[in-house]
Design a protein around this nucleic acid. Structure first.
Length: 206
DNA sequence: TGCCAGGCCCTCTTTAGGGCCTT
């Protein structure tokens, strides 16, 4: 088991009506896990009613139907609970720029904020696993031989898979570079480091 | 009815364009 500051985080995933909150898209499901000391210690999952129907593509892509969303709680209620769940934790998502846009937009609607920093598992994986076929979440799970027993594109399952990938990355950094206490900002710095400079960054033992 | 984004990265770059990722 690993124990360091970088893995005391909330790992989250949104399912949404589309790609852009700036063009009116809304969240329809939030899933998240809390990781502490290398283990999942808490979970959050909720569907939320966006106030309008989702299109057929989203129903097929996520398995979340309009019938399910009609019975779901309002986005405002769910996001209020989720803001309480994340508290002041640092946050991780796969392609974090996407989830951050929706988190910011939904919390703005209820005048809530968060104080944690975001890290992106996809950007970090692009540096660490440069030989992977691609850096989609499902591909990286297979690439790392992580046990998967569920269906991708549901928020809680994707957040759990992202959490397992995140822990694998921390273990790989620890094993390959001997960094015993991996700080969250090292992962953020790694994500912005050019590929050719990754080895140098990690060899510095931060 | 059809279409709509945005951040990051790479390169045949930087006075730009296109692919990757997310739903």
């Amino acid at each position: 088991m690993i124990s360091n500051k970088a893995d005391s985080v909330i790992i989250l995933d949104f399912e949404t009506t589309g790609l852009s909150p700036g063009h009116g898209d809304r969240a329809i499901e939030i899933g998240a896990v809390r990781i502490e000391n290398g283990e999942i210690t808490d979970r959050f999952q909720a569907l939320m009613n966006p106030g309008r129907p989702v299109n057929r593509f989203i129903e097929d892509y996520t398995g979340i139907t309009n019938s399910m969303l009609c019975k779901a709680r309002d986005c405002r209620e769910v996001m209020g609970d989720f803001a309480d769940f994340i508290g002041g934790h640092n946050l991780v998502a796969h392609n974090a720029s996407f989830d951050k846009r929706f988190l910011d937009a939904e919390l703005k609607r209820i005048s809530r904020r968060y104080s944690g920093q975001f890290a992106c598992s996809m950007l970090a994986a692009r540096r660490l696993y440069q030989d992977a076929p691609n850096h989609k979440l499902s591909t990286l799970i297979r690439y790392k031989n992580i046990r998967a027993a569920g269906v991708f594109h549901r928020a809680l399952y994707d957040s759990e898979m992202t959490a397992k990938l995140w822990l694998n990355m921390l273990e790989d950094i620890q094993a390959q570079y001997g960094i015993t206490s991996i700080r969250f900002d090292l992962i953020q710095k790694l994500s912005k480091t050019p590929k050719y400079a990754v080895q140098e960054l990690l060899n510095r033992n931060y």
